[in-house]
Amino acid sequence: MASSRFNGLYNVETVVCNYAAERRAQELLRTWLSIDQCEQYDAQGFFEVVGSDTGKRYRIYRGHVFNIQELDAFGEEAFAWCLTLHGLFATGDINLAQKIALETFERRALAIANRSSKSTWRQAVRSQPSWLP
């Protein structure tokens, strides 16, 4: 009984700490985004960046698993990339690290990232019910 009560308190504390970390990380992310990126992020849940080496456009969604879309010439997703941080970090920190990596050392960052074999998002949408866009 005492043990389960302790575990319950521990879990509440963990959730509160995670919430605080995420809030802090989101604030930090926003200070490093351009005004356009910030508006895009608020309205659509992602922001776009331009790769420093290739000039390609990427869409970074709030998230940390295959949340980077590489866009083709038509603005459609060509591939999804997975690039994250070693250890446990808030999503805002991961998304800021992804932004800086793609905007300043794109090739080096993508060399260690994992790429989907084709458009995972488009495939997923095609297999979803019709109420999804």
């Binding site: 490093w32 698993v65 295959f66 941080l85 800021l96 690290a97 260690i112 990232a113 994992n114």
Partner: peptide, 9 residues
């Protein structure tokens, strides 16, 4: 800003 080491996910 100090960013920890990146890795493929």
């Amino acid at each position: 800003l100090f960013i920890p080491r990146l890795r493929g996910g």
